[in-house]
């Protein structure tokens, strides 16, 4: 799902890295938003609504709407549309409102 050739834009990408999504190893580019890497890998369901558990994807892509909240490296409710991807990152779909490890 990556754009290979664009008439105007050239995409400068960081290093190709690996990260974990719900236990699955995926590839992405360092520094791009986690949501972009997931989307490029065909992952579109990022969270679920709190009351009815309906699947949700991203909506705004600018860190404003919280529709893309996921668990990243053990911290719940990370807005993955603006969270930069890093090597070895552990990204998980969270249950409901997100679990805080105490």
């Amino acid at each position: 799902m990556r754009i290979e050739k664009h008439p105007i834009l050239e995409f400068q990408k960081g290093a190709k890295i690996k990260f974990l999504f719900d236990g699955r190893e995926l590839e992405g580019y360092a520094g791009e938003p986690v949501a972009a890497a997931l989307h490029a890998a065909g992952v579109r369901v990022l969270s679920h609504s709190h009351s009815h558990n309906r699947p949700r994807g991203f909506w705004c892509a600018i860190g404003h709407c919280s529709s893309c909240n996921m668990r990243v490296n053990g911290v719940p409710n990370i807005r993955v549309c603006i969270e930069p991807l890093a090597e070895g990152m552990v990204v998980e779909t969270q249950k409901g409102r997100g679990r805080l490890d105490v």
């Binding site: 719940p76 409710n77 409901g96 409102r97 679990r99 805080l100 105490v102």
Partner: peptide
């Protein structure tokens, strides 16, 4: 804070 699953 933001809402979280019940723990407290």
């Amino acid at each position: 804070t933001e809402p979280l699953e019940m723990f407290l």
